[in-house]
Design a protein around this nucleic acid. Structure first.
Length: 496
DNA sequence: ATTAGGG
DNA sequence: CCCTAAT
């Protein structure tokens, strides 16, 4: 097994060194002391390890056609990554190495982000790189995972463009994933769920409406049906993931703060377009990315930024898995069964609530017993926030619920619309509504000013909400005034 | 137990 | 999100 080699000799650069060598300069050039990340995983775990495992996972996907990764397995792999984060030193056996490799499948989801980013990068910069980069890289794009990284050292832009142009469906990406994820993101075997209700489509339109604001180009996005090839392409591009992440950052550094803001905004917008079920999965990643940009927007704090960048990227992967697959479940036909026996609400004390909380699926697949054991042995929930990002779909569900029940019946809304989300207590819903009110009113004022330039500066404080959503919120705000008080000052419940 | 409201 | 007070 190749993975053994990696494990045995950490300094050994495997045959995929094209990757490792290419990527590292990027890291090195901006962060010379990348060995001193605050006492954690990255101190011991070098890029090579991941790159290698990365490719391994890729091969495994296509060679073994291991697409029907079960939720439980993902769960376990997530745990493995978690363990890596916490105690890399304990990666001391073949199993561990194997786990690393398989855990890299998790980059698949990450790639979706990368794709969106690449859209961003491709469009504004033009397709200048199309020709040269494609000719530059190895012919069949998919034969090796290294090609995606090829040429990174020369021009990170080229890499992005390359990956995108190889696919040749540049503008289809978003839509495809929307459709794809509306059904089943993980096992591609449930085609009947691929197309969801018109409600989702509505949402798509709404997001699209808000999209032009970012000034980015996804204008000619045609809503094309999902095709198996697209799904495959996503996997093929897996290797570019990390590179693209790095690329974005490097762009920011080179081009300066203004661009950073733009990217941040667009990024969140794009990610928001994830389908309503899928974005649940993406939520954590989204928050990670956005936070990352917010935290280190200025090129000044380069070193620090980079250091944290790597760290965050690990978190990113973890966060991805941390969002359970229940989203895709609830959004589809299986929802009924889930709702019939709603999960008991999140523990009253809310101790750590390892975000995944997909115990049902987890228990279902008992394939990797040792892995489970490994995960449990680690205190994996250490750095995990007991916070869950609100996704656009959730927000819209909440808005729908408020439209139905008005404000003040949060438990009802929770039971009816968030029955499948063990997290999100009624209080959470209310808090979120409160925040939405504030945010929407603020954005409305921004709309009046209509100063995009100045606007952007302030905008990075809050993640832009689609205009349509803002409208609904404002509308609801008038219909259901939040503090619902009678003239006498007493709170009244809307009867219904 | 649920909600309002402040931190 | 968390906590507390009020209901």
């Amino acid at each position: 097994m190749k993975c053994q080699r990696v494990k045995v000799d950490e300094s050994f650069v495997p045959s995929v060194e094209g990757k490792a060598v290419e990527v590292q300069p990027l890291l090195a050039e901006s962060k010379p002391d990348h060995t001193s990340i605050d006492g954690d995983a990255w101190k011991h775990l070098d890029i090579e390890d991941f790159s290698y495992g990365f490719e391994y996972g890729l091969k495994r996907n296509y060679g073994g056609l291991d697409c029907n990764t079960t939720q439980g397995q993902d769960e376990l792999e997530f745990g493995v990554l978690d363990g890596l984060l916490d105690e890399v030193d304990e990666v001391d056996d073949i199993h561990a190495a194997n786990d690393i490799s398989r855990a890299c499948e998790e980059f698949l989801l990450d790639v979706e982000l990368a794709e969106k980013i690449s859209d961003l990068d491709c469009a504004p910069l033009g397709r200048l790189h199309f020709g040269d980069s494609s000719s530059e890289s190895q012919s069949p794009g998919f034969s090796g995972s290294s090609n995606g990284v090829h040429g990174l050292s020369e021009s990170s832009i080229a890499v992005v463009t390359d990956s995108e142009c190889k696919i040749g469906v540049e503008n289809k990406t978003v839509k495809c994933e929307l459709n794809d994820s509306s059904g089943d993101n993980w096992d591609y075997q449930a085609p009947e769920n691929v197309f969801t209700t018109t409600h989702d489509l509505e949402n798509l339109d709404e997001v699209d409406d808000a999209k032009p604001e970012s000034g980015m180009s996804s204008d000619d996005n045609a809503k094309k049906p999902v095709q198996a090839s697209n799904l495959r392409q996503k996997r093929f591009r897996k290797p570019t993931l990390r590179v693209i992440s790095l690329t974005i950052r490097s762009h920011d550094e080179h081009l300066g703060g203004s661009v950073t803001l733009t990217k941040e905004e667009s990024l969140s917008e794009i990610i928001t377009q994830e389908t309503l079920d899928d974005d649940e999965k993406l939520s954590d990643l989204k928050s990670k990315c956005i936070n990352r940009r917010q935290k280190f927007p200025s090129p000044a704090s380069k070193d620090k930024c980079l250091k944290t960048e790597s760290h965050n990227e690990l978190n990113l992967v973890r966060g991805f898995k941390s969002v359970p697959r229940e989203g895709s479940f609830t959004g589809t036909s299986t929802q009924a069964s889930f709702e019939s026996c709603p999960q008991r609400g999140r523990p009253k004390k809310r101790p750590y609530v390892p975000v995944p909380e997909s115990d049902n699926e987890d228990a279902a697949s008992e394939s990797e017993g040792d892995n489970a054991k490994r995960r449990k042995s680690k205190k994996s929930a250490d750095r995990r926030k007991h916070q869950r990002m609100w996704t656009l779909s959730e927000v819209m569900k909440l808005i729908d619920g408020i439209a139905q029940y008005g404000t003040g019946r949060w438990t009802d809304i929770k039971k009816l619309l968030f029955s499948s989300s063990a997290y999100r207590t009624p209080v959470d819903l209310r808090d979120k509504w409160r925040n939405l009110l504030r945010a929407s009113s603020v954005q409305k004022q921004k709309l009046k000013q209509n100063k995009k330039e100045v606007d952007q500066k302030l905008k990075h404080a809050m993640r832009p909400l689609p205009k349509s959503v803002i409208c609904r919120i404002l509308e609801l705000a008038t219909v259901h005034p939040y503090p619902r008080f009678t003239p006498g000052g007493r709170y009244i419940r809307r009867k219904n």
